[in-house]
Design a protein around this nucleic acid. Structure first.
Ligand code: DUT
Ligand code: MG
Length: 767
DNA sequence: TTGCAGGATAG
DNA sequence: CTATCC
DNA sequence: GCAA
């Protein structure tokens, strides 16, 4: 896998690629021309090539706020009831299965990295509805399609009589064919009628074939499961050859096929499990341990976990020191009474001053945004000589099982069209204050499409999800109702598929595909799990696949990370939005605490708060100090955190900057004295000369940031939370030769300016 | 057919 | 390294 | 899913 990923990364891209995806983020219906000046600027700074892609491991996309939040009314019952409680608002109208028109390509068109790391990409409902007797999709077989063996798809080269594995589904561990012996076995199994899956498809798999060197615990670990369903037989790797030797299916329960450390089973049925027999019939006795686990989990799923109830396990700090509550009270009281006194007040004032969006910099664009947008098309960006040839380094066919397919890849036409016209329609170019949601004529359409977006929320396809998001965003900006597909189609980021859906929604007030998707078993649980802080698509899918349906199931059976524990304990807390006032109160406490440490610190509440939201998903606070660069502020964060714990404000840490002294980030939970709800809080300490970039980053929103960054990269820059850079070069091995030259970082305005984007006030950065 | 932001932390 | 989060 |  690793080699696969590494290889797929192109260090350089040619010009065509350079402009690829230019329109990526939402676009603006009406676009003005951009000034020639900015254009020229862009052109002049443009580099021959630019590394656009950094495909490492980036899977998560959607912001947390729009998705998977559970309505507060339902929160009550989360722990104690099964997830069905959450289905109440799901439309139950006639499902009438719709064949997905677009899903087909997912498996193949998904980039390698995604294919590797994201889930099966099978059509909806395949999980439970795929008949066991149907062959799996080619993509999930362990052998490549064009391998001799696999190619003749089920056309037996071996006499029918010898197709002893007919209807049997094997999952090999390790699940690859790097080992020649294993490859041989896979081939043989395939030749004799068996299916060798490369994906874990629980419904289909009948046997797990385990390498002799592995132990049972390795199997569980490799599958990341706590037990193996009892309809699946676990045998060691001699099983296949023995079966072939005897030309019949042998009893997999026999001692010699056991995997080391495998829980004992009541043996000796000398009858084999029928390949097609329903799960229940196949040796019910085996792996009793596991069975027990799962059943107990389900039976107890209705109980509240007593031991994990609130704050039982965390908040070690509260015990320490002097009465936290008093301290925190004092802090707040101090804040309130502060009219009269002391430098604390002035500190706070200073901080507020800094944070006030008003004063600086906004005057120039205070008015209209019509003047905004964009670079017109006319741009020839054409003639820069490119180092066209993609030096396709190697491509060792090595390793991993399949995928000789990738040999095809690698060649870029390099036809240089003289001019790429890129009408900039980056969302970041457009001021969007996100108001007007009331009278929105497309409200209903947006609502339904948002539901759809949630369904695609990863696991299926992260990109599809963000495409929905982009389309929805465009729709949200419309002032007139979009009624027909043709009408919709004209909008940017709304293509064939979305247009059709929009029309269907307008005409029928529903979307069959959505209803179909909502029927998918496991989907409700998936959403439930995705709502847990620290649980993403991968883990959620794994849990669902293990048959868990409630958080209790999970707590009882799974080893959780520290974050996940807190996330489950405070599922409701973190799912609820924070009133703006409360955000302010949290901020004030941090500010005064920080002020006591160093009176020169400047704090400012960022994120959705700075954008003016009425409520926020969390509290984001940036801390900086005039003139201080780098790590003079090191250790400061630690101290601050410590104090926050002391006063009973900080409840737990979720992620802290790693040990280093440049400790700059802390993510945790905090709580007010009179509000029982824990809140997520994010502190960011930034050097003075990076404050502009940090401001830009931390204000968001996320889509806005991505839009800006994409735009920057198109223009030959690199934008991140530390600054705007140019000339980022990378060596042959994708090694970073330099970090580029920082061209801006002090101020937001400067960054906007250089990128040719009209300044946007924080409230206008809602995309 | 391919890319879709960029970086940090936990494990 | 991947998964998750910002 | 969209755009190239
Ligand atoms: O994927 C992401 C997520 C966040 N951010 C930036 C923008 C965002 O505004 C800021 C804070 O993140 P947070 O998750 O708190 O989002 P928010 O904009 O503050 O919204 P919410 O109200 O959900 O907190 O970090 C990104 O750049 N990329
Ligand atoms: Mg926030």
């Amino acid at each position: 896998m690793w080699e696969l990923c590494g290889r797929s990364e192109d260090p350089f891209l040619n010009k065509e690629q350079f402009f690829t995806g230019l329109y990526s983020l939402d676009s603006e219906p009406e676009q003005a021309e951009t000034s020639e000046a900015s254009l020229a600027l862009a052109a002049s700074r443009n580099q021959r090539y630019k590394r656009i892609v950094r495909r490492s491991s980036r899977l998560q996309v959607a912001s947390s706020n729009s998705t998977t939040k559970i309505s507060s009314t339902a929160l009550e019952s989360i722990r104690s009831t099964s997830i069905q409680a959450f289905t109440k608002n799901i439309s139950t109208a006639a499902p009438e299965p719709v064949v997905s028109e677009n899903n087909i390509n997912m498996a193949d068109s998904t980039p390698d990295i995604s294919a590797v790391t994201t889930a099966p990409s099978t059509a909806p409902a395949s999980l439970e509805c795929t008949p066991r007797h149907l062959p799996p999709p080619e993509s999930s077989r362990i052998l490549p399609v064009h391998t001799k063996v696999a190619k003749r798809k089920r056309t037996p080269v071996v006499p029918a009589k010898k197709q002893i594995f007919g209807g049997m589904y094997f999952y090999f561990i390790p699940n690859d064919i790097k080992n020649p012996v294993r490859k041989f076995r896979v081939q043989k199994a395939d030749e004799h009628g068996g299916f060798c899956l490369k994906e874990w498809r629980e419904q289909d798999i009948t046997h797990i074939i385990v390498d002799s060197k592995l132990k049972y615990s390795d199997v569980l670990k490799s599958l990341r499961r706590e037990f193996i369903p009892d309809h699946i037989a676990i045998v060691n790797d001699t099983y296949i050859s023995d079966c072939l030797a005897f030309a019949r299916i042998l009893n997999h329960d026999q001692f010699q096929y056991k995997v080391a450390g495998q829980p004992s089973t009541t043996e000796n049925s000398f009858l084999l499990p029928q390949p097609h027999s329903p799960p229940l019939s196949s040796t019910p006795s085996e792996t009793p341990l596991c069975d027990q686990q799962s059943s107990s989990a389900t039976t107890q799923s209705l109980h509240i976990r007593p031991q994990l109830s609130k704050r039982a396990n965390d908040t070690p700090s509260s015990a320490a020191g002097d009465r936290p509550t008093d301290s925190q009270l004092a802090v707040e009281a101090e804040l309130k009474a502060s009219v009269t006194t002391d430098d604390l007040v002035s500190q706070q004032l200073a901080a507020e001053l800094l944070s006030t969006p008003g004063p600086s910099t906004t005057q120039e664009c205070e008015v209209k945004d019509e003047l905004d947008i964009m670079i017109a098309e006319a741009v020839r960006m054409g003639d820069l000589p490119l180092d066209d040839d993609i030096s396709a380094p190697d491509d060792g066919g090595t390793s991993s099982d399949e995928e000789p397919i990738r040999a095809v890849k690698r060649k870029k036409p390099v036809a240089r069209t003289g001019n790429s016209k890129w009408q900039d329609k980056f969302q970041c170019m457009h001021a969007n204050d996100g108001k007007q949601q009331e009278g929105n004529p497309n409200a209903r359409t947006i609502e339904i499409l948002s539901e759809m977006q949630k369904y695609y929320e990863m696991t299926k396809d992260q990109w599809r999800s963000i495409s929905y998001r982009k389309g929805i965003s465009v729709l949200r900006k419309q002032t007139k109702k979009i009624c027909t597909a043709a009408e919709a189609r004209k909008l940017p980021m709304i293509g064939e598929s979305l247009a059709k859906k929009i029309e269907e929604i307008v005409e029928t007030d529903r979307l069959r595909k959505l209803e179909y998707a909502q029927l998918e078993p496991g989907d409700v649980a998936l959403k439930l799990f995705l709502g847990v802080y620290g649980v993403g698509p991968s883990v959620a899918a794994r849990w669902v696949q293990s048959g868990y349906k409630t958080l209790d199931d999970v707590v009882k059976n799974v080893r959780l990370t520290a974050s996940q524990k807190v996330g489950i304990d405070h599922y409701q807390d973190f799912a609820s939005r924070i009133p703006r006032d409360e955000v302010k109160r949290h901020g004030d406490i941090v500010m005064s605490t920080a002020a006591n440490l160093d009176s020169q610190l400047q704090l400012q509440i960022m994120g959705s708060y700075r954008r003016g939201s009425k409520d926020c998903g969390d509290i984001d606070i940036m801390i900086t100090k005039p003139g201080v660069s780098a790590q003079e502020i090191s250790g400061l964060l630690d101290e601050l955190i410590e104090r926050l714990f002391e006063i009973g404000f900080a409840m737990c840490g979720l992620a802290m900057s790693r040990g280093r002294d440049d400790g700059s980030k802390w993510h945790g939970a905090s709580k007010l004295l009179d509000v029982p709800t824990w809140r997520r809080i994010d502190l960011l300490v930034v050097p003075w000369d990076e404050r502009g970039a940090a401001l830009l980053y931390f204000t968001g929103n996320d889509i806005f940031n991505r839009s800006m960054r994409l735009l920057a990269s198109k223009k030959g820059y690199g934008l991140n939370q530390r600054g705007l850079f140019k000339d980022i070069l990378r060596g042959p091995q994708r090694q970073k030769l330099n970090d580029g030259t920082k061209v801006a970082g002090d101020s937001e305005e400067e960054i906007f300016e250089i990128l040719g984007v009209p300044y946007r006030k924080p409230e206008e950065r809602i995309c």
